[in-house]
Amino acid sequence: MGPERLAFLSVYRQERFSRRGAGFAILVYLDKMATPLVEVRDVHKAFGTFEALRGVDLDIGRGEKVALVGASGSGKSTLCRCINRLETITSGTITFDGQPLPQEGKALAEHRAQVGMVFQAFNLFPHFTALENVTLAPMRVRKLAKADADAEARELLARVGLSDKADNYPAELSGGQQQRVAIARALAMHPQLMLFDEPTSALDPEMISEVLDVMSELANEGMTMLVVTHEMGFARHACDRVCFMDEGQIVEQAAPDDFFDNPQSERAKDFLSKLLHH
């Protein structure tokens, strides 16, 4: 995006509620919808001498579901974590909703509140019940009243199929149930984007599908999602695009059917052939 367009856009945004507003508002809205929600440009990330990301470019459109696949150590999780700045990047830029990611502080907390994250290890708070896990951030970060937060949390728990577990502590729940609570917890903040960092990798096979079902439903409802996963079935059927990473770079990205049926790069072919052999 050139500087002229940026200046133009900022005028649009200021004019949005003025008298000339209505027409502009629509234009601004259309323009906003046309710009990607997340833009990653030439991002590098080094851990000491190890380069985890080596020049990554990635756009995530509004409402788009992107699967990030690749071998362990290819940088998928690191990229995912960079988008809500759990990892700081060494160079490059990441913008979210047109704004570069803020530095540490209030603005960063606000950014993170708009981005839901689901972890491989669930990371539920063990000293709070399932319901409290979901209501905690809305009450303490968004300052929602307890009654409202409770009501919404119960709805969310019902949505992930756990109405009857609201008062259980995380350790009383199975892995799949814990992960579904974690998804409800993230959704309670009304995020614009959901990041899933290998959400099913720590689960027994029979629990994987209950989590994937919830994620597919979320995808159908139009949530913007970035999903780091080894579940190729999910990547194929629930996502709009598959990005294949290798050695810290996005080597190939394509629509799921194209990627799985007709991979272009040697490394993607190699990766897929290994998957199919087992």
Binding site: L86, A109, R112, V141
Partner: peptide, 8 residues
């Protein structure tokens, strides 16, 4: 990390 990701 989970707490930070929720904006705390």
């Amino acid at each position: 990390e989970a707490a930070r990701a929720l904006g705390m």
